[in-house]
Design a protein around this nucleic acid. Sequence first.
DNA 1: CCCAGTTACGTAATCGTTTTCGTAGAGGGC
DNA 2: GCCCTCTACGAAAACGATTACGTAACTGGG
Lengths: 343, 343
Amino acid sequence: MTAARSSPGRVTMRDVASVAGVSTATVSKVLNDRPDVGPEVRQRVLDTIGRLGYRVNAVARGLRARTTDTIAILTDDLEGIFTTTLMRGVEEAASEYDVSVLLANSYGDPEKERKHLRRLLDRQVDGLIIMSGNRVRPRSGPALPMPDTPYVFLYEYGMAEPVPSILPDDRGGAALAARHLLDLGRRRIGFINGPASWEATADRLDGFTATLREAGLDADPVLVRHAASWSPEDGYALTAALLDLPDPPDAVFCASDDLATGALAAIHDRGLAIPGAVAVVGFDDRSLAVHQRPPLTTVALPLLEMGRVAGQRLLSAINGEPQSHELIRVACELKIRTSTGPA
Amino acid sequence: MTAARSSPGRVTMRDVASVAGVSTATVSKVLNDRPDVGPEVRQRVLDTIGRLGYRVNAVARGLRARTTDTIAILTDDLEGIFTTTLMRGVEEAASEYDVSVLLANSYGDPEKERKHLRRLLDRQVDGLIIMSGNRVRPRSGPALPMPDTPYVFLYEYGMAEPVPSILPDDRGGAALAARHLLDLGRRRIGFINGPASWEATADRLDGFTATLREAGLDADPVLVRHAASWSPEDGYALTAALLDLPDPPDAVFCASDDLATGALAAIHDRGLAIPGAVAVVGFDDRSLAVHQRPPLTTVALPLLEMGRVAGQRLLSAINGEPQSHELIRVACELKIRTSTGPA
DNA sequence: CCCAGTTACGTAATCGTTTTCGTAGAGGGC
DNA sequence: GCCCTCTACGAAAACGATTACGTAACTGGG
């Protein structure tokens, strides 16, 4: 008279059906909130489900319904600084829709990437988030043709052709920094940009100069430098060079927190006050920014939000909404700390 | 005469079978390397698979074969400092066996954790890695009963009852540090431990004192302190207190890199040479360790290896090998940098 | 009172594999 | 030539759900 089970397997839909005295079709309808099932039968089925502890088998459901409620994140650097936050955003968006997230790490090895991709497609994932650190080499879509599987590129620069993709608003972020410094009364603002080979640097430069121009003052070309790398050492050297100028800057905007770290050191070593004599703004908002002395004002990459947007966009594409191939830029946020302030 | 497909769906096993002039059973046998299929038929099937671009449907296979070749990582802090490296280790192990990894993040919310767990079990994952930051509250297994699903706890302290779990060898790691300092000729070694509420601190203390005792000198109780937190500030304060002693230490071993960072600052502020007057060893090997001045000698947590071991252990349990409930400790490694050295 | 239209449920096909048997034919020992 | 054992394959039944369709019972309008 208890559960009608004897085999060691999990309790299945047929068990529920037979105990509740209905057909499996009805049980399925109850589970999926179909309208054509009476209230008392529905309740009876629900009760039996509870009593037997029935849980749907997502694999069987996936086979029949041709959807797995699973998306995958394909990354080439699982340990990258920005990776986890991006992933968290994606996971949050997916969780809201009861979609699970598969993880695949390629280490940047194209062979491994293809292998993972094949395996994911074999697993019938409903969609794909393709993510990597800032790669420079141009790409033109997934490594494998995926006729029916939607995808979104996340934080991936240098796409050769239009694909659905999510990037930070580098231009707007740089503009935020410039306007902040202008608002504080700084007028000679230096800009230490990253290596020109990085696509983001062009936008950051553009946002910077455009904002100065709007304020009526042209960016002094001598105050704008491209670093050879993103390292603190380069930040140090280029800042030192700026300070040696006959007409040195009263503020330095760096295109990364690492560069800004070097800038802080250079200014400090000159015996100049921060932000008194020279204000400093970074970019990225890595955790090191807040631990600088003084704590670094910086333009935060909206990583969490980018991940969320990527997830939402992918899920809406999965749900059949028309997939645009446009590039979406997510706004950066200025984190004001003590490395800037009234002169 | 080309592919026998007209419907828009993927090419299926039946298509391969009909084109190759065999039954689906035979195709399946070829795919799974069963012995009972002749060489010429096998080749013919293989060729057709290649020509049609057939790929197995893992969902259907999973339904029938009752195994999904998927494990899940359940974490409560996706953005934790140690999390990604642990995950990478798990992913590496899984990849070797062609097993995919599902990711679930609970933010430490037990309700969310249960919800995720239910969903994962519905998805018929073959096994579970349960992972979190160093949690203090005692736990006694998964949040939900999982009759047939193997699991391994990874980097989870304070388990109330024996469960399969993986931890770093805290005792051995501390011993490594102590022996290193002894070998360098240090004789008055201070130990700044973490909060006593953390299970790891007892083992680290034990490894430290045991090593001193083996060397014939007892640890001076006055040189052993428990910090109230793991913060650099506490490291600074406690180190300062040790240095103020009438008979101050010639080396300080800290139970975390953060504590050690504070220790370095305190020693530096006293105008004492590092490692000349006082040597410093940390614990964890976070990336900040190498960026200290001087670069910090530290006991590295074997995170990657722990992840790998957890993955391998889980997979072997999945493959039917008897699952022991013992706790496995993975050896730490001493990273010698310049904060230690000849006196 | 009849009949078309709902409503509520069941039947059975189906999703794409794996796997258990069954069996035809080849081969071998005697 | 008989029987028995392999070998190589196919037929068909799962696996556990979803869903198109069929149909009995009920409804209400005329």
